[in-house]
């Protein structure tokens, strides 16, 4: 929960004398005033807090309950699962595909997002900055179907680029051409899907980091400039360290969207077997696999797909927990 990280941050500043015990000292301290509004407010926040936990638990329970058939099949007759080699050999290529596409999306989007955020907060002319902000936010409002259509159109024109990549950088496994020395003829590869994903997560990361950069204490910035720092040095010394934990959170939110994005990937990617090369066709992500096979699935296949969904749920949970841990660590160091 977010509160835990906040307490570690505000802890040292809040209580200079930790030995004053509130329980025993009730007699001396004046009783806090509680008006009806406070009760309603605290009850409302409590309900909201509990509700989100209940919903999460509900989703997890639903996924688990629907997965029982698959777990049963995995234990008794692994060959009945799609692919014929048990659930894990079915799911791991999907997991890898999901992680690769999200990682690429993040690698491409984060530097761009930071650049745009810094430009709008610190570099752009006063009049241009808000306009840029609106435009970026607009990107977030485009439905993923539209991104999918656009991605398909984009894919065709990327084939030349992929051919060039495979010619000069083919020695890197992810740009290697196939056995005939060719790359995908349609361009609908995992790399194309990842690039479209990166544009889809760009607005989230940009908006959040922009808000954080705006919070940088003016005094620190001016102090840096007064000491003779250039604009870049000022940003490096005051803005970026201040926003470190915020940048990490923003990136993680972007990652969340990339991991779960369904429609655009399902439309763009030409799925196939797991391949190391990202410029030939192949690979598949979890969300897209579920979307493509759900409409015609029944019985065990349906249960398999829901179990795959459970795996994605667990991955997202792990990634978020990891991210929280990182944020907690960096923010303590930073303060």
């Amino acid at each position: 929960m977010p509160t835990s990280t906040q307490t570690t941050v505000s802890g040292p500043a809040g209580a200079p004398e930790p030995d004053s015990q509130p329980e025993s000292g009730t007699g001396q301290r004046p009783k806090a005033v509680v008006r009806p509004g406070d009760r309603i407010f605290s009850a409302a926040t409590l309900i909201a807090g509990i509700l989100i936990l209940l919903i999460l638990a509900g989703v997890a329970l639903f996924l688990l309950a629907q997965s029982t058939d698959t777990i049963d099949a995995q234990v008794n007759d692994p060959s009945s699962i799609t692919g014929g080699k048990g659930f894990f050999s079915y799911v791991w290529p999907l997991v890898i595909g999901t992680l690769i596409s999200s990682a690429i999306a993040l690698l491409v989007a984060t530097p761009f997002a930071l650049g745009i955020a810094l430009f709008t907060t610190h570099m752009a002319p006063r009049k241009l900055a808000p306009v840029l902000g609106y435009v970026i936010d607009l990107l977030a409002a485009i439905p993923s179907v539209v991104y999918g259509l656009w991605g398909i159109a984009l894919a065709g024109s990327l084939t030349e680029f992929y051919l060039w990549l495979s010619k000069w950088f083919g020695w890197i496994p992810i740009f290697a051409p196939d056995a005939n020395g060719d790359v995908s003829n349609t361009g609908r590869t995992l790399l194309t899907a990842s690039l479209v994903l990166s544009i889809m997560i760009l607005p989230i990361i940009t908006s959040l980091t922009r808000e954080i950069f705006l919070q940088t204490p003016r005094l620190q910035e001016e102090a840096a400039l007064a000491l003779g720092a250039t604009r870049w040095e000022m940003i490096r010394m005051s803005v970026l360290p201040f926003g470190k934990s915020g940048i990490a959170s923003a990136t993680m939110l972007g990652l969340g969207r990339a991991l779960g994005e369904t429609m655009a990937v399902a439309m763009i990617l030409s799925p196939g077997l797991l391949t190391a090369s990202l410029v030939v066709s192949g690979n598949q992500t979890i969300a897209s696999e579920i979307a493509q096979n759900f409409p015609e699935a029944a019985g065990l296949r349906l249960s398999e797909l829901i179990t795959v969904g459970l795996v994605l749920f667990v991955i997202t949970l792990l990634v978020n927990m990891g991210a929280r841990a990182i944020v907690a660590k960096t923010s303590v160091k930073g303060s």
Partner: peptide
């Protein structure tokens, strides 16, 4: 399901 080992392009 189209046999995955046969390769080729897939579309939704």
């Amino acid at each position: 399901d189209f046999p995955k080992d046969f390769g080729g392009e897939a579309a939704q």
